[in-house]
Amino acid sequence: MTTDNIASKTELNDAELSRYSRQILMPEIDYEGQLKLAQSHAIIFGLGGLGSPASLYLAAAGVGKLTLVDFDEVDDSNLQRQIVHRENNIGQAKVESAKQNLTALNHHIEIQTIANKLDEAEVAELVKSADVVLDCTDNFASRFALNRTCFQAKVPLVSGAAIRWEGQLSTYDFRDLNSPCYQCLYPEDSGQELTCSQNGVLSPVVGMVGSMQAIEAVKALLKLPTLTGKLMIIDAYTMMIRTLNLKKDSNCNHCSQQ
């Protein structure tokens, strides 16, 4: 099934109606919403701790096409939290491992993989084909690049991060001219970033954030209310979740200048 076929899909077959029946029962989704998901294309950058649960739930929810982007290979230290991979996938490219296990979960969807490192021009060209982008990467350089390309393409960007017991989540919906961007939250010169390899992370924390990214992506695809203009902060140690207002920064070096 190609992207054109996904976009031109006009109805759900009996097998899909049965599979997605619990979502179709929800008034916010209904048949038309489920069909919209089947016609949609989501790109997931990073098939690690965040991308694993996000990809599993988007595949299970029936998003018609998933493009998986990651140039890393599965290592045994990944399996503590990267639940889309299995022990028999160790040494395999993460995108191929994920495709194998996602296809076993749902054969009704199309899965495209990109296992090489992309430059920003290639990312920008890829993003143009997306209905939503999930930033499940683990470094500022990738996050800033995705912020720029999604802003230019006016594609919603669902951004998550997790470390130790903590997680955060926001959606930057660039279809809305008033949406802040990632640089409104973190300017490019904001300082040194923390990494899981140096500071550790509890496995279910990335599960929480990645699952919430999938929820935000589904809502963005269905044009339901998202965390646009808000930042969710999760403290799993105390089980406290705060949602803060995040306004467009009039001095942002990126979105306020364009």
Rank of each mutant, 00 (worst) to 15 (best):
K65D: 06
L66N: 04
L66C: 11
T67H: 05
T67R: 02
L68D: 01
V69F: 04
D70A: 14
F71Y: 12
E73T: 15
D75L: 05
D76W: 08
D76Y: 11
S77T: 15
S77I: 07
S77N: 13
N78W: 06
L79E: 03
L79C: 08
Q82W: 06
Q82I: 01
Q82S: 11
I83D: 09
I83K: 11
V84Q: 12
V84C: 09
V84G: 08
H85K: 05
R86C: 10
E87Q: 13
E87V: 09
E87M: 10
N88W: 11
N88I: 14
N89E: 07
G91K: 06
G91R: 01
Q92K: 10
Q92L: 05
A93M: 15
A93F: 14
K94Y: 10
K94P: 01
V95W: 01
E96S: 11
E96G: 02
E96V: 10
S97F: 02
A98L: 02
A98H: 05
A98Q: 08
K99V: 11
K99C: 13
K99Q: 15
K99L: 12
N101H: 03
N101L: 02
L102V: 08
L102T: 07
T103C: 08
T103M: 13
T103A: 10
T103E: 14
T103P: 04
L105D: 05
L105T: 08
L105Y: 00
L105V: 04
N106D: 12
N106P: 06
